[in-house]
Amino acid sequence: MTETTTTPDAAERARLVRSTRRFDLRRLLGGLFLLYGIICTILGIVHGSSDLKQTGGIAINLWAGIGMIVLALLFFLWDRLAPVPEEDILGNLDREADEKAAGEGKQLG
């Protein structure tokens, strides 16, 4: 395995780990559903009676809103309990030379 010429230093690595985790997909999903959940819950409270008329008696915005808030919290919890392993983030960095070789088609005949 060839060593890359630009092996990033420790500070650079720590920064990469932080930035990768900050934008973890689960946080984005959590954020999106938290917002949607809050919007639907508020509408469910404000429009209570007109909603019921359209749905035939189910407070759908309220239920969907609460459901989405719970989903959002589960995403945040999952992200907290199982953050992306450091070696997954950094492993990718160390493989740059291999990746370039693969991209140039050198592993293939």
């Binding site: 997909l25 984005l28 999903l29 999106l32 559903f33 949607y36 749905t55 035939g56 008696g57 189910i58 759908i60 239920w63 969907a64 459901g67 989405m68 989903l71």
Partner: peptide, 25 residues
Amino acid sequence: IYNEVMQFFVIIAGLVPLTIVGLHR
């Protein structure tokens, strides 16, 4: 890929209420 995962959850969040209300109706 990230957008596909996000779309997966949003379309489900849209279709589940539709199914529930529809079945109720």
